[in-house]
Structure formats: structure tokens, C-alpha cells
Computed example of a mutant assay.
Amino acid sequence: MPAVSMERRTTAISGFVESLQEPRTPYISPKRFSAALGIQVAGLANLAGVHRNTMRNPASERLQDKLREMVRVIAAAATLTGDVSKAIFWYRNEPIADYDHKTAAELVAEGHADAVMAHLRDLENGASG
């Protein structure tokens, strides 16, 4: 893979991650992240496995932990696809056969982000998925 292509991927992913930051804070913004995913904030709460009222406190450690897991998986998928939009689509919609045909979003919500990351590493290393 040419270095320029990888550099562009890294820049796109960095821009995506930076676009999620709550202004003037070190936090991921639930509003910005839900907009990036194309869902309501309440839908993001469901994907994150937290109560919708938790979204009102973006500084919540539990919320930020969940959102960081989601971003980590989407960023890893974007590295593989070269496109953040494709990675988000995959995250929300594509069933993973090895995990009872659940989507990455469902698996991460259930606390299985590491399993999804392992799946992505397998894909990157050429395993069929």
C-alpha cells in the first residue's frame, strides 16, 4: 500500500475523531457522535448501553468509556476500509457470522469490543469473515 494512501487514511480518521470532541473539553460529544452515526442521541445511548439521561452529562466516566470503545472500533474499521462512512455503515449494519450474526454495534454495546477488534485484526490479516 502506498504511503500517501495510508497517510490519507490516517488523516481522515484523525479528522473524524477530532470532529467528535465536545468543544473546549477533552470529551467525546454525544451530540456530535450521534450526528456522525446518523442517529438520535437516545439511539446513541442504546448503542452505548447507557440510560438516555446519562447523555446529558458528557463528562460521565462510564459514558466516555463506552463512547471511546465505539470510536476505537469504528476507527479500526475505517483503517481497513479507508473510509469513515463505510466503517460506520459496517459498524451499524453488517452481521458478523462468527458472533451469532450480531453487528459490531450490538457486540460493543454488550461489552465485546475486544472481540470485534480481534475480528478486524483477522480481516486485516486475510481471514475471511
Rank of each mutant, 00 (worst) to 15 (best):
S128H: 06
L37T: 04
I96R: 02
A35P: 01
S14A: 15
R52T: 12
T11K: 11
R8L: 09
L20C: 05
M1E: 03
A78N: 02
A75D: 03
A59E: 12
A87G: 13
G38L: 05
G49A: 03
S60K: 05
D83E: 13
D122V: 00
R92I: 12
A48G: 06
E7W: 00
E18H: 09
A113F: 01
N57W: 00
A59K: 10
Y27Q: 03
E61D: 15
G111N: 08
K86A: 12
P26R: 12
G49V: 09
F16Q: 05
G111T: 14
A113R: 05
N125C: 08
L107M: 14
S29Y: 06
S29Q: 09
A77F: 04
G111E: 11
K86T: 10
D98R: 14
R92M: 14
P2N: 02
S19C: 04
L80N: 03
Q40T: 14
A75Y: 01
T11N: 10
E106R: 07
A45I: 07
E106Q: 15
A109N: 05
A77N: 09
P58R: 04
Q21H: 10
S19L: 07
V50K: 02
T81Q: 12
D98H: 11
R68L: 10
K86Q: 14
L44P: 08
E7F: 00
I39C: 13
V73D: 02
L20Y: 01
P23S: 12
A78Y: 00
T103W: 03
T54G: 04
S85F: 01
L67V: 06
T79N: 06
K102C: 13
G126F: 01
H112A: 13
T103M: 09
E124W: 06
V17K: 07
L120Y: 07
A105D: 12
E18T: 10
P30N: 05
F16C: 07
G15K: 06
E22C: 02
M1W: 00
S19T: 09
A105P: 15
E124Q: 14
A77Q: 15
L80P: 00
H101C: 10
R24C: 04
A105Q: 09
V17R: 07
R24F: 08
L63P: 03
L120V: 07
E124A: 14
H112E: 13
